[in-house]
C-alpha cells in the first residue's frame, strides 16, 4: 500500500464542505469515518483515505426534539446512522423530520453539503 498522509479531522470537515464524504479504509476492507490510525477491527496499520459514496439507507434513527446548542434551531430533525452504497456507515442529520411518518429504517437518503453544522442528509 502506498505511503499516504491520513486526513485530519479538520481536513475531513473541509472536504465535507466541498461536498465530499471521506473516511479511512484498512487493507482488509474495514471502513471508518472516525480518524483511526490502526484498524479497530483487525489491528492493521495499513490504512488509507477513501472517498465515500453519497447515497445510502437509514440503519437506525431518532427524532430529536431536545437538541444541543448547535442544533437548537433545527428541531425537530432526525439523527441517523446511514449505511452507504459501499457498506460503510456514516452518521448525519435529516432536517424537517417531526414524526415516524417522515422517516423509516431502510429509507434512501443522500448527502447534502450545507453551511449548517454537522453532516446533513436529505430523503431521496
Amino acid at each position: 500500500m502506498p505511503e499516504q498522509e491520513l486526513a485530519t479531522i479538520a481536513e475531513v470537515e473541509d472536504k465535507r464542505k466541498d461536498g465530499q464524504l471521506v473516511g479511512f479504509r484498512c487493507a482488509n476492507d474495514h471502513t471508518f469515518v472516525s480518524p483511526v490510525r490502526a484498524c479497530p477491527k483487525c489491528g492493521t496499520r495499513e490504512i488509507e483515505n477513501v472517498e465515500l459514496p453519497e447515497q445510502g439507507t437509514v440503519v437506525t434513527f431518532t427524532i430529536q426534539n431536545v437538541a444541543s446548542e448547535e442544533f437548537m434551531n433545527e428541531t425537530p430533525f432526525a439523527w441517523a446512522i446511514i449505511e452507504l452504497a459501499d457498506g460503510s456507515r456514516v452518521t448525519g442529520w435529516v432536517p424537517f423530520v417531526g414524526s415516524e411518518d417522515d422517516l423509516s429504517i431502510g429509507d434512501e437518503v443522500a448527502f447534502e453539503p450545507t453551511y449548517k453544522p454537522g453532516v446533513m442528509f436529505e430523503k431521496v
Binding site: 479531522i9 469515518v33 472516525s34 480518524p35 440503519v59 437506525t60 434513527f61 431518532t62 427524532i63 430529536q64 431536545v66 437538541a67 444541543s68 448547535e70 442544533f71 433545527e74 430533525f77 439523527w79 441517523a80 446512522i81 452518521t91 448525519g92 442529520w93 429504517i105 453544522p117 454537522g118 453532516v119
Partner: peptide, 26 residues
Amino acid sequence: SDYFLEGGVGATFPGLYAAIARAHMD
C-alpha cells in the same frame, strides 16, 4: 460522545440510546 461523529452531527445522549432502541425494536 464521539463529538465528531455523534454530538457534533446532531445526536444527543437520549438520541444515541433512541437509535439503539429503534434498532432493538426493529
